[in-house]
Simulated scan of single mutants.
Amino acid sequence: MAIVEGHNVFPHEVEEPLRSHPEVREAVMFASSAPDRLERVHAAVAVGPGARVTASDCAAGHGNTGTPGVRPTPY
């Protein structure tokens, strides 16, 4: 779990939309602390052989969740 802008961000909130893409086999969320002492949410994805998934494809799966930090950066 990460705390972003005072909100708890749980891994499933980040990972499930990424996994919904047909070419994404696995997704994992991780957090890092920035020099400003704020947490940032990141994600890594594994795709199948020959898949052509872009960061834009991944971002499109998150849409506008309304919860800060659920849309990871960078992809």
Rank of each mutant, 00 (worst) to 15 (best):
E39A: 04
P35M: 06
A34E: 10
G66Q: 09
T65G: 13
G48S: 08
G61I: 07
V41T: 12
A46M: 04
A60G: 02
A55E: 15
L38R: 13
G50V: 06
M29T: 08
C58Q: 02
E39N: 04
P35Q: 13
R40M: 05
V41C: 05
H42Q: 10
A34L: 15
R37M: 14
A59P: 05
H42G: 11
G63R: 09
R37L: 13
R25I: 00
T54L: 00
T54A: 06
F30S: 07
G63F: 14
A34S: 15
R25T: 04
P49M: 09
R25M: 02
G66E: 10
A55L: 04
G48L: 06
S32T: 14
R37I: 15
R52Q: 12
A60N: 07
H42K: 08
V53M: 15
D36E: 11
C58E: 09
G61K: 13
N64A: 11
E39S: 09
E23T: 00
S32C: 07
P22F: 05
C58S: 03
P22I: 03
T67K: 14
A60R: 08
S32M: 04
A55F: 01
G66Y: 04
D57A: 04
E39W: 02
G61V: 12
H42Y: 03
M29R: 03
H62I: 12
E23G: 04
G48R: 05
A59V: 14
T67P: 03
P68Q: 03
G61R: 15
G66L: 10
V53T: 08
C58M: 11
